[in-house]
């Protein structure tokens, strides 16, 4: 079983493997809104025409030390993807802020990690989102 971490707290994960399709399947064409499993070594180039069909893109974190997902999320956002971005796998609470600032909306973690790093811990990261040098450096408006 797994949990979904969102800004307001934990939710139970209701999606299963069947709810996602691969990049190869997507490239064959779609007729209804779908959810995409995008590997952290896959290239999202040329995906823009599909963006309006994508309800969700899920990016795996095989290890919390592997930061490719952060750049991939940011790249998707900069290419104009506006649907849900989910990180799944091994991220720790201390990375929640990074994930959110890189463009993720939510994180899917397993129950074991959720027990060791409970809801309040993840939530304590939410307010820190505001403390960002990068946002501050940029021109606003």
């Amino acid at each position: 079983m797994s949990k979904i971490v969102r800004d307001y707290g934990f939710d139970r994960n209701i999606l299963t493997v069947e709810d996602f399709i691969s990049l190869a399947t997507l490239r064959q064409g779609v007729e209804k809104p779908v959810r995409l499993d995008l590997g952290n070594d896959e290239n999202p180039d040329g995906l823009q025409p599909y963006f309006c069909w994508l309800e969700m893109i899920r990016i795996p974190f095989p290890d919390f030390n592997d930061g490719r997902g952060f750049s991939l999320a940011k790249r998707l956002r900069q290419l104009g993807y506006e649907g849900v971005l989910r990180a799944s796998g091994y991220l720790i609470a201390d990375q929640y802020r990074m994930a959110r600032l890189s463009g993720f909306d939510e994180i899917e973690i397993d129950d074991l990690l959720a027990a060791r790093q409970p809801e309040w811990l993840w939530q304590s990261q939410v307010i820190k989102k505001k403390l960002s040098y990068q946002d501050r450096l940029l021109k606003t408006g």
């Binding site: 990375q95 959110r100 890189s102 040098y133 450096l137």
Partner: peptide
């Protein structure tokens, strides 16, 4: 200094 501020806690580049 500009780079110090920009790179400090850059969310995308903490796990290179």
């Amino acid at each position: 200094e500009l780079l110090r501020q920009w790179s400090t806690d850059h969310p995308e580049f903490q796990y290179l």
